[in-house]
């Protein structure tokens, strides 16, 4: 996999005059590959949102460097180039929709980039189809559900044809149905369009869908790996006051009680299969 974003020993301080220990990010080193789906988890105030805002140069590191496709985010002259490559979707879907009509909002970014009208039209249509909101193109955003609004916000980014989309807790304000809609959309964009996804979340069942999970705590990276590598470390995650999926926790407890079960179990299906398998084995052993 080709490197896309390189985060190199980044420290960040909100208030430069504050005491030297008040860093929101404390030495972050991370490389994101092109086309990767990475979830960043951690509880509120761990620095995950601050990091997200660094990826499209809304914030620049106090010390250290970040490069996006080779461009340093401190390079002011190439700011729009970076923002074109890395789109950011925020938590509250209501507050990021600018125009009063769905398709006109989706066009907003392209219009700012000075793209010719015909091309904007085709990009907007394609973006709305990609998030499955084409049927609502002439609707007013007010009449949409939270999940639909968030998908419109994502379409607004997709129309700019980015290589990477960073989503900062995009489902925190949505109901379960809206959450599903958004997660399905994100996964599809990653799989079908090859867009790099950085998902900031505190829902572990969402993080499970990623290729790689980065766990953050108080401005540092605590742990990184595939979901199957990260979540079985129940003890460590709980120490840092993080949740694990119930399936993973059950297996962890059963393993702790001495039962022979596989480690990287993440969802209900795998969990039930594993337990059923063990019971089967015991039965067979007895007979």
């Amino acid at each position: 996999m080709k490197d896309f974003i390189n985060i190199n020993h980044v420290y960040y301080q909100y208030d430069e005059d504050a005491a030297s220990d008040q860093f929101a990010l404390k030495g972050i080193d991370l490389t994101l590959g092109k086309g990767e789906f990475v979830a960043i988890v951690g509880h509120n105030g761990c620095g995950k949102s601050t990091l997200a805002k660094h990826l499209n140069s809304l914030y620049v590191p106090t010390t250290g460097d970040i490069t996006v496709d080779g461009i340093n985010t401190k390079d002011d002259d190439r700011l729009f180039e970076i923002r074109k490559k890395v789109g950011l979707v925020l938590q509250n879907p209501d507050n990021q929709i600018v125009a009063g009509i769905v398709e006109e909002d989706v066009a907003f970014g392209c219009e700012n980039l000075g793209i010719p009208s015909d091309e904007i039209r085709s990009r907007v249509d394609a973006a709305l189809k990609a998030v499955d909101m084409y049927a609502y193109r002439t609707h007013s955003p007010d009449k949409l559900s939270g999940g639909q609004k968030q998908r419109v916000a994502i379409a607004g980014i997709i129309a700019m044809e980015p290589e990477c989309i960073v989503l900062d807790e995009p489902t925190a304000m949505l109901d379960p149905q809206g959450r599903d809609e958004v997660m399905t959309t994100i996964a599809r964009l990653n799989r079908e369009l090859g867009i790099t996804i950085v998902l900031i979340t505190h829902y572990m069942e969402e993080a499970v869908m990623a290729d790689r999970v980065v766990v953050m705590d108080s401005g540092t990276i605590l742990l990184t790996g595939t979901p199957a590598e990260v979540f079985p470390q129940v003890e460590l995650l709980k120490q840092h006051r993080l949740d694990v999926p119930q399936a993973t926790e059950l297996i962890y407890q059963l393993r702790g009680a001495g039962y022979d079960l596989p480690q990287g179990v993440l969802n209900a299906g795998e969990c039930a299969d594993a337990i059923a398998g063990l019971i089967e084995k015991k039965r067979a052993g007895k007979v």
Binding site: P176, Q177, E205, P245, Q246, A247, L250, N267, A268, G269, C271, A272, I275, A276, I279
Partner: peptide, 20 residues
């Protein structure tokens, strides 16, 4: 009706379907 149960309840449900 579009609601779901907690994951742990779902696991029990799946086990029951497997005849446990």
């Amino acid at each position: 009706i579009g609601l779901r149960v907690p994951q742990i309840t779902r696991i029990m449900w799946l086990l029951k379907e497997k005849g446990i």
